[in-house]
Write a protein that binds this DNA or RNA. Structure first.
Lengths: 252, 252
DNA sequence: GCTGACGTACTTGTATGGTAGCCGACCGAC
DNA sequence: GTCGGTCGGCTACCATACAAGTACGTCAGC
C-alpha cells in the first residue's frame, strides 16, 4: 500500500509530490499505521519515500494545520496524541454541519438521491458480511459525504472530513467488534428512510444519535488505550526515544 | 502596517518566519489590500518581506488550503476571486456552527459571560460613533468568537474564522455605509438579550437572521464590484499581466 | 497586415546546503 | 552516589540552487 515506488508511479497523474506525500501520510496517520506519539522526521520520511525533504516538510505543515501532527521546532515532529479537547471539538463540528445539512436535504432529496444512498447501504451490508472493516470505513465515509451532497453543501464536506479524521483515529481501534457494524448500518438506513419520508425532526435526531454513538465509542477506547491519548496540558514531553533506524538504507 | 522591518522585529517573540508571513499575507488578503485576482509571486513577496522563498511559499500553501489563493503550477499564484460557491459554503458553515454553539450556550451563560459580551457591544457603539470601521471589524470578530466560547466550543472558532474570511473580503467593501454598523450592533444586542433571557429559539433566530444579513450584503457587493468575483467555471485565465514592480528595491 | 514558430523571462516544484537550538548521554567534581 | 557542565547528534528552520514548464513578445514567412 502506497509504498515508495508506487508514489512515483502515480506522480504523473496530475498531482504533485507534495499532494501525494500528504495523502500517504494522512492515510497512515488516520489508519493508525503511524501511532499517536510516534516521531515523523522529515529526513526519515524523505529517505523512505524517495523524495527530498521539501515536499515532506510542506506536507507535515499541512498536517499540523489539520491537527494530525505536532511540530516542535528544533525538537521534532510527532503524530499528535488524541486530545480530549480536539475530539470534543471535532464531534461538535461534525454534528453541527452534518445535521444542518440533513435538515436542508429533507425536501430536496429526489428519488435518485435516495437510490444512490441505498446502494451504499447495500454495499455496507456486503462489507459487514465479509468482515471487511477497511471497506466499511470507506463506504461509511462515502455515505456521509453523499448525504451532505444531497443538501447541496458538498463543498463543506472537507471541513467535516477534517474533523472526522480526529475521531476516526480512535474508532479504528474499536470497530473490531463486528457487531457494531450492523448497528451502524441500521442507523444509516434509518436516516435514509426518514429522509425519504420527509420527517425532518426525526431524521435529524436519528443522525445525531448515530454520530453520538460514534463519539461514545471514542470514550470507550480511551480506557483501553490511554497511551494514544494526551493527558491534556502535559504535551511538552514528546520523548525522542526514537530507536535507531536499522533498515532502509540500501534502496535507491 | 506590517512592513518588512516590523516582520523581523517581531520574529523573536516565539513565532517563526512562516507564521509571521502567513499572518501578514492573510491580513492583506482579507483586508483587500491584495485584491482578488492579483498575482502574488513567491519571489516578489520574498524580496519585499526580506526573507527567502521558503517561508513565503509555505505560507502560500497554507493560504491555498484556506481558499484564499489559487496556485497554478508553473503559472503563478493569485489571490482567489470570490466564488459564489465558496461564499455559500462559508455561509452555511458559519451559520451551522455559530447557531449550534449558541443553542448550547443558552442556559450555560453566566452573568459574567453576558457582562463581557456587553462590554464588547459598548465598544462597538463607540467605534460606530467614531466611524472606525477597522476597529468595528475587529470587535465584531471578537464578539462572535466570544459568543462561541460561552458554549465551551471556543476550539471550533478557527473553523468559523476560516469560513468568515471568505465573507469578510466582500464585506470590507460594503461596510462604508455607516448606517449598517448600528443595525448590526442592534442585532448583536438582541442576541445577547435573548441569550440572557434564555430564549433558545428566538436567540437562534436572531443570530441566524443577523448572519443572513451579512450574507446578503455580499450579494449586493457582487453587482457593484463584479471584477472581484469569479464567474464560476471560467477560472483558467488568471492573466499574468503583473505590472512591473517599480518600488520596493532600495530597502533591506 | 496577418499568422505561426521561437526564444526569453517568468512561474512554481524539487533538491540540497547551512544554521540555531534542543535533547540526552557522558564524565568529572563533590 | 549525586549533581552539574559539556559535547555529540539530532531536529526543524531558512536560504539557495537547479529543474520543468508556461505565457508572451518578437520576428520571420506568407
Amino acid at each position: 500500500m502506497a509504498s515508495a515506488e508506487g508514489l512515483h508511479a502515480a506522480r504523473s497523474r496530475g498531482r504533485n509530490t507534495r499532494q501525494l506525500v500528504h495523502e500517504v501520510l494522512r492515510s497512515r496517520i488516520v489508519g493508525l499505521e503511524l501511532e499517536p506519539g510516534s516521531a515523523v522526521s522529515e529526513n526519515d520520511l524523505a529517505a523512505e519515500l524517495g523524495v527530498s525533504r521539501t515536499p515532506v516538510r510542506e506536507s507535515l505543515i499541512l498536517l499540523a494545520d489539520e491537527g494530525l501532527v505536532d511540530i516542535y521546532p528544533q525538537m521534532g515532529t510527532f503524530v499528535s496524541r488524541i486530545r480530549e479537547r480536539d475530539v470534543a471539538s471535532a464531534q461538535f463540528i461534525r454534528e453541527a454541519l452534518e445535521c444542518a445539512a440533513l435538515r436542508e436535504a429533507v425536501g430536496k432529496a429526489g428519488a435518485r438521491d435516495v437510490a444512490e444512498l441505498r446502494v451504499l447501504l447495500t454495499a455496507q451490508e456486503e462489507a459487514d458480511r465479509q468482515a471487511d472493516m477497511e471497506g466499511f470505513f470507506q463506504l461509511d465515509e462515502e455515505f456521509h459525504a453523499r448525504l451532505m451532497a444531497v443538501s447541496g453543501h458538498a463543498s463543506a464536506w472537507p471541513v467535516v472530513s477534517q474533523a472526522k479524521a480526529q475521531l476516526d483515529r480512535a474508532r479504528r481501534l474499536s470497530l473490531p467488534m463486528t457487531q457494531q457494524m450492523s448497528l451502524l448500518i441500521g442507523q444509516h438506513r434509518e436516516v435514509v428512510d426518514l429522509l425519504e419520508a420527509g420527517d425532518l425532526d426525526r431524521a435529524d435526531e436519528a443522525l445525531r444519535s448515530h454520530l453520538r454513538l460514534v463519539f461514545s465509542d471514542v470514550e470507550k477506547i480511551r480506557s483501553k488505550h490511554p497511551e494514544l491519548f494526551s493527558d491534556e496540558d502535559a504535551p511538552l514531553r514528546p520523548r525522542r526515544d526514537s530507536p535507531r533506524r536499522t533498515a532502509a538504507r540500501g534502496d535507491r
